[in-house]
């Protein structure tokens, strides 16, 4: 086993601009995958509200399956196997693959958040809305969603951070974010320590302040409402590797 060699500042200076540039790709991918997950999560949530038992069971199963299998393999499936699927298969570039793969994977978690938000609204609110003769649409837009969404914002924020930390996975299908850039740099000059440490520090510097922000937001939300918002996961975070 090799010994750790000495830290070399000139390598840091050399690698920094490359990794800094790649950071924007990582951040862009985070936003794209996250946006896809937010929208697709909505789709799951609404399909699951359709009152057909077999459909609900099927959707629950599919979601569970997506949640409990590795996103890495899901990326491989989309990248390598999807083009071969008869009729619907098309070849997808690494970026589209990643948006679909991570987006769908995380949408199953996001959907649970939406659901917990909706379920946290007291039954009496539905009843009061009925008693005041609101239409179904008005009940959702005026009464239920304005109460269901705010308590979920900190949790959704948490998932943005989790998504950010999951983006290096896309290096496996060739998206040139920070990790792949460091890896390539390492392979070229055989100096992995500085670039990989830089990548780690970039992640820490971006995610730690964000998570403190989310915590603050959560405390603020808890104070704002009469009741304790239900479904909060109390700052617990999950990862989805």
């Amino acid at each position: 086993m090799n010994m750790i060699r000495e830290w070399d500042w000139s390598t840091v200076i050399d690698a920094f601009p490359l990794i800094f540039k790649a950071m924007w790709i990582t951040l862009g991918m985070t936003i794209a995958c996250y946006a896809f997950a937010l929208v697709f999560g909505l789709v799951w949530t609404f399909i699951r509200r359709v009152r057909i038992k077999p459909l609900q069971r099927l959707i629950s199963f599919i979601m569970e399956f997506i949640r409990t299998t590795p996103p890495l393999v899901q990326l491989y499936f989309i990248y390598y196997a999807w083009p071969l699927v008869p009729y619907v298969g098309v070849t997808l570039d690494p970026i589209t693959t990643s948006i679909l793969g991570l987006g769908i994977h995380f949408s199953t978690y996001i959907s649970e958040i939406y659901r917990s938000g909706i379920e946290s609204v007291d039954k009496g609110q539905w009843e009061a809305a009925t008693a005041l003769n609101f239409s179904t649409r008005q009940k959702w837009t005026k009464i239920i969603l304005p109460q269901a969404i705010p308590p979920t914002i900190p949790m959704l924020g948490n998932y943005l951070i989790i998504m950010f930390k999951e983006i290096p996975l896309t290096a496996a299908v060739g998206v040139g974010g920070m990790l792949l850039t460091a890896q390539k740099y390492g392979a070229k000059f055989y100096e992995y320590m500085e670039p990989l440490t830089l990548v780690a520090l970039f992640f820490l510097l971006l995610s730690y302040p964000s998570s403190i922000l989310v915590q603050k937001l959560e405390q603020k939300m808890n104070r704002r409402f009469d009741k304790k918002p239900g479904g909060s996961n109390n700052g617990k975070e999950v990862t989805a590797s």
Partner: peptide, 23 residues
């Protein structure tokens, strides 16, 4: 705790493998 939660698992994995380097 904050260090390991704040950096990505896959980055840590690569760091342990390429930098330390562990088997």
């Amino acid at each position: 705790v904050e260090f390991f939660r704040g950096t990505s698992l896959i980055v840590q994995l690569f760091w342990f493998y390429y930098v330390l380097p562990l088997p």
